[in-house]
């Protein structure tokens, strides 16, 4: 039933997709992110990244603490361009 466990809701990535990518050699979080687009959707990785880090630890035999999290990319939540336009005099 693991092909129906959704790990990344933004990009519709399942548990099996993650395991398959790890087996293909994408065995660190930055490579997995680029391969599967996990953590690149509107949730900013809040749902998927902790799950993927746990799967990575299980599959690579590393401790959970040894798995490096990906670089954080601002903004914290999606924000429209209009919000950043501000006054013309600034910056």
């Amino acid at each position: 039933m693991k092909d129906t466990i959704i790990i990344c809701r933004c990009e519709d990535i399942t548990y099996d997709d993650v395991v398959k990518a790890i087996e293909e050699g994408y065995d660190d979080i930055e490579s997995l992110k680029r391969r599967l687009r996990i953590g690149m959707g509107p949730c900013q990785g809040r749902t998927c990244i902790p799950l993927v880090m746990r799967i990575l630890a299980q599959k690579t035999g590393k401790n959970r603490e040894e798995i490096e999290p990906p670089t954080h990319r601002p903004p914290l939540t999606p924000a429209p361009f209009g919000l950043f336009v501000g006054d013309e005099d600034e910056g």
Binding site: G41, P75, P80, F81, G82
Partner: peptide, 15 residues
């Protein structure tokens, strides 16, 4: 937003 005002309502997700 100056070149294409429609962008005012488009959401930035990552930089």
């Amino acid at each position: 937003t100056k070149l294409m005002p429609v962008f005012k309502n488009i959401n930035i997700v990552r930089q």
